[in-house]
Design a binder for these strands. Structure first.
Lengths: 219, 219
DNA sequence: AAGAATTTGACACTCTACTGGCACAATGCT
DNA sequence: AGCATTGTGCCAGTAGAGTGTCAAATTCTT
């Protein structure tokens, strides 16, 4: 479960009139309320009415903003474009998993705000099958995009089996690091954990008993 | 998403009286109906009433068998014990990922019935976030068990970071193979695909362009 | 300021998962 | 066969998600 900064895909680039501002405001207010309440009470013990009370909107309005109760948590989703762009620019000579790792480590460090949001977000999902299901569907999309990007980097128009597998393993490694990080409440340095995990992967696949130390990637 | 034969964890070992037989019967009838209907109409477009009609039981009875609508699909779950046992018995000298692969390949081939069930099962989950969420929770359990087993094989009482990572990577590789297999409707030989996937893993990290051929594991 | 366009709230609904209670039927036991 | 046990059906009911409708409020335009 990779962590990237969250952004609202429906947010307008221009700062529109009062209308658009208010719309965006209630949207994020609802999203915030949902994240907080889901994280504390749990998804099933939070009714849409609760969210509406918290955000001072009517129930009818809620469903004008979101198609279903589940969707409110995913109003913001991960911004993976910068990562993909970096990955696309990596030298085709680098083995794909290493390119993946380097591209991830080349991303700017998460801001304290990003960290807080990520931790809260995952706490919100913790006990709900629906939310986790939605999440993995999103991850599936991420994986597909990574595979496409790896293919492009190598000059292929469509991902082949190796591209898909590399994307899967990269995601899995990130997932592993991410889980450790979350277990510590997002307090440690995620990138250090990620680097160590990728180093360990190399050791695991090659049969080398000792993980290699590798210098930080150029940036 | 690893594939192992499905079995009903609540099925009694002894063939009890008429009562127990009937109970098991309606249980599996409901499970069958659910799998079939979810796979064709989709989870959300199938009401519990539909399932009851199909299985000739009252709605009240349904909820005496299962706690919720989602649970009926998971009445049978994957029987991973034989795999874990094999893995536990693997030589500690073998690198963990290879032990994982060999243990998987040492399992008996899936029966045509197992294959049909697996394909149907995944078709049933396809469009539902709830079901996929439940599924990944199960996978999480699988991963934890594998980590514990890898630790035990190496003489550790609790899994360390490397054990967890190896379990994650093994699962991811299996997942990759499994997805390919499902895309072909479960028609090819799963084990061949699995073996090829594990071979490819090594090449991805080393930059070796050609996957190594490896002989079939001893059995 | 006035009218048009858009957004919101209130109310009254539907639909479905899920539960309590009790009579009835099937099974097990002697 | 007769009684105890246990599973099942029916009925009535709760709760919460999601929708249609229209009047009121807000914002945009000129």
């Amino acid at each position: 479960m990779p962590v990237f900064p969250l952004r609202d895909p429906d947010a307008p680039t221009e700062v529109g009139g009062r209308r658009q501002q208010k719309k965006l405001s209630t949207r994020t207010t609802l999203n915030d309320a949902a994240t907080r309440l889901f994280a504390t009470r749990g998804y099933e013990h939070t009714s849409v009415d609760d969210l509406c009370r918290e955000a001072n909107v009517s129930l009818r309005t809620f469903f004008r903003y979101f198609e279903g109760k589940e969707d409110v948590l995913f109003a913001r989703d991960m911004d993976i474009e910068p990562f993909l762009a970096t990955l696309r620019g990596m030298s085709p000579d680098e083995p794909p998993l290493r390119a993946f790792a380097d591209a991830y480590l080349a991303q700017p460090r998460l801001s304290p705000d990003d960290v807080a949001q990520a931790v809260q977000f995952h706490r919100a999902m913790q006990d709900s099958a629906v939310l986790q299901g939605r999440y993995v569907m999103g991850i599936e999309h991420f994986r597909a995009e990574v595979a496409r990007t790896l293919a492009a980097r190598a000059g292929r128009s469509a991902p082949n089996d190796a591209d898909c597998l590399a994307a899967t393993l990269g995601q899995a490694t990130l997932d592993h690091a991410y889980k450790q990080w979350l277990a510590r409440g997002g307090r440690g340095d995620l990138r250090t954990i990620v680097r160590r995990s990728f180093d360990r992967v190399a050791a695991l696949t090659s049969g080398d008993p000792v993980p290699l130390a590798r210098p930080a990637p150029a940036r």
